[in-house]
Design a protein around this nucleic acid. Sequence first.
DNA 1: AAACCTCACAACCGCCAATAC
DNA 2: AGTATTGGCGGTTGTGAGGTT
Length: 345
Amino acid sequence: MGHHCCSKQKVKRGLWSPEEDEKLMRHISTQGHGCWSSVPRLAGLQRCGKSCRLRWINYLRPDLRRGSFSEQEERTIIDIHRILGNRWAQIAKHLPGRTDNEVKNFWNSCIKKKLIAQGLDPNTHNLLKNKSNNSTKKSNNYTHHIQDSTSIFTIDHTSTNKGITSMDLKSTFSPYCDNITYNHTPIVPNIEYQNPTFAWSEQINHNNTVITTLQSQTSDQRTRDSLLDFTSCCLMENAANINVSSYINENSMWNGTGLEPTTLNPINGQEEQEMQVVQLQGDQEFPIIKTKFCDDQEDVYKVVHDHDQTVEKTFNDSSNFDFEFMDSGLYTNVNSSMDQLSWDC
DNA sequence: AAACCTCACAACCGCCAATAC
DNA sequence: AGTATTGGCGGTTGTGAGGTT
């Protein structure tokens, strides 16, 4: 079944001939593509507009970089894929002159196999299950029981501290956990969290004020970053405010070591706010302050919850907001029933 | 030399969101 | 407001070159 734009006409399919390329090139370089559905007629091609568009974007565009991928490009693809997943168009934006199709093909034909050969799951970037089941790591005063190597697991500590009792970390689990030295620094703890579109870390300094630095994990730092100070979450009860002024999203650009956070500037120095309440599982209600920033005209949601403490967090889209994370205990004091990782402290 | 296999990459398909009408 | 069209995307398939048997 063809696309709407070509369903009514007889169109040629399959590989493009040099003559067709020439016609398309000549048309676009002199008149631009305009509406793609009219390009075949204007260029004298028996193709559908969609096919013309694809041919131009993936092959004929003059700014395309051809040839094999460099090691740096390969590294970049792996790093960003670890954060974004199969969002080829987003990944390709970080590789000048490369198309989403090219990146996707390179991933499927080359990188995927390399990761599997290294014992890594190309989807999660974690160790494949049969290599790390039921691993246990003991370090300092903490025992981490990891049931399996899936990318979702829960930290559940049972100390007398109130406040944070569990935290759900997604996709931050390092496949190299066996090599990790747990560097627990109670005074300056870190919390890392990541969802498919962005990641951030939070620090509590000596004054119990929270500094949020938003960043992604780079491949060469994942050992250090991935299980960074689980222990810190118990100190979150002292958190006074978390002010998020920047975040990583799909518009953030790769700078060679990580994604550059996008800075948000409140409109006229003032945030436009609108309160709404979100009902979560377990009948808990959470107020959300809907805040609009001027940076990209998108709505940004700041979550405020006040039990023993006030915690704020910003998301670029309420539908993107990870309620599981919120419900995991960071905001709710609820003990997780998932006892995959216990704390012996 | 021919048949078969593997692989990289080009192209297509189907879905969805945005936009036009 | 509802429908049709278009553009964009990710998944999948097709194609042909090169290697192997």
